[in-house]
Amino acid sequence: MKRQDVKGQVAIVTGASSGVGWQSAVRLAEAGVRLCVTARTAQALERLRDEVLQRGGECLVVPGDVTVQEDVERVVRECLAHYGRVDVLVNNAGVQSYGLFDALPWEHITRVLDVNCLGFMRFARGVLPHFRRQGRGHVLNVQSMLSRGGAPLLSAYTASKHATLGWAKALRLELEGTGIEVSNILVPSVDTNMFAHAPTLLSRAPAPVPPTYDVDVVARSVVAAVRRPGRTRVPVFLQGRLILALDAVAPWVGQFLLGHFGARMQQRDEPVERREGNLFQPMTRSYGPHGPVPPTPRWKRYSATAGLAALAGGVVLGVAGLARAAR
């Protein structure tokens, strides 16, 4: 795909009140993209607009909930009225709920699926008629490494991400030849406020599966995807391309590690009582790109990379040796 000039394009960014959405909006504005940002928390969006304006960008704020069809239609309508066009949809809004599957309240499960999966679909249906009339457009889905894997305590979130990636693949096939592109970004654990917002049935605060990356890694990948659409991007190596490769040759490694230690990995030594979190009402006390768990130091990531790479190499050599012995 030829590199596109993104300056002057118009992008709707959902879930822009914190984390990946916030930082992606900032990076897109720096690249010259005109923004329409949406989330449930108007105050946070106003602060984001202030930052974008300080950096010389353009930003329209339209609060809304991705689970409410009228809100979705209003965001698209106001963006078109303000800018006269939409070029990119950055589907990013997402929620989690921590707990064992059979202990999660059913309304938590359905809400996670509604936000993470149906929310993406609602916004895509909202912009696709305009994209078709325009003869071009781009649906960019901020996915997760859990779109291809799994983690304990996050069954509903994992299900929503698998479903959304499958939908995106089918949508891309349907749009072949129309000039409308579909891209996906498989996001690793990043330092967002999701871990300060997510409800949990446990007694300790949620934490990302280590290692944790700076949210700007994903934001830069979003900009790269807007410039070169139509791909599924994996922006990091250790908790990205290496994990996918290792899972292909030795899936038992991830099964063992997450099966035995995954639940403990996802809890901080900090007591918490947060059974509802931001599932049904936004939490306004925290906003911005970064969250309560800082990025893992590089030396730790490099050490883990070397260890996993050695393990993967040993597995490949072992499989090759068995194949030779069988001949």
Rank of each mutant, 00 (worst) to 15 (best):
L201A: 12
P289Q: 02
C117S: 14
H290A: 05
H260P: 00
A163V: 08
P229M: 10
E276G: 01
G135P: 11
Y157V: 01
L308C: 13
F120M: 04
R264L: 15
W106M: 14
L28P: 01
A81Y: 01
A93T: 06
S97T: 09
F131Y: 15
S18H: 14
K2I: 12
E46G: 04
G149I: 00
R122M: 05
H108G: 04
I109M: 10
Q54V: 08
L311I: 03
T232P: 06
L242E: 13
A168Q: 01
F120D: 02
T232C: 07
V209Q: 03
L317I: 10
N116G: 10
A245P: 03
V249H: 09
R285P: 00
V20P: 00
Q43H: 12
Y302S: 14
F256N: 00
G99L: 03
T305K: 00
V6M: 09
E73Y: 01
V6L: 14
Q281R: 11
V6P: 13
A42V: 10
A326F: 12
R274L: 12
V13D: 07
R172M: 06
H260T: 15
L173C: 14
G19R: 02
A93K: 04
Q4W: 06
C59E: 03
D191H: 13
R274E: 11
T212F: 08
G291P: 05
G19L: 09
G56N: 08
P63T: 04
H197E: 12
E73I: 01
Q23V: 04
V13C: 07
A323S: 14
R3Y: 10
D214R: 08
R227F: 02
I185E: 00
R85E: 15
R327N: 09
W252Y: 09
L171P: 12
A168H: 01
V90L: 15
R136M: 09
A224F: 10
A245T: 05
L128D: 06
G321V: 02
L140S: 04
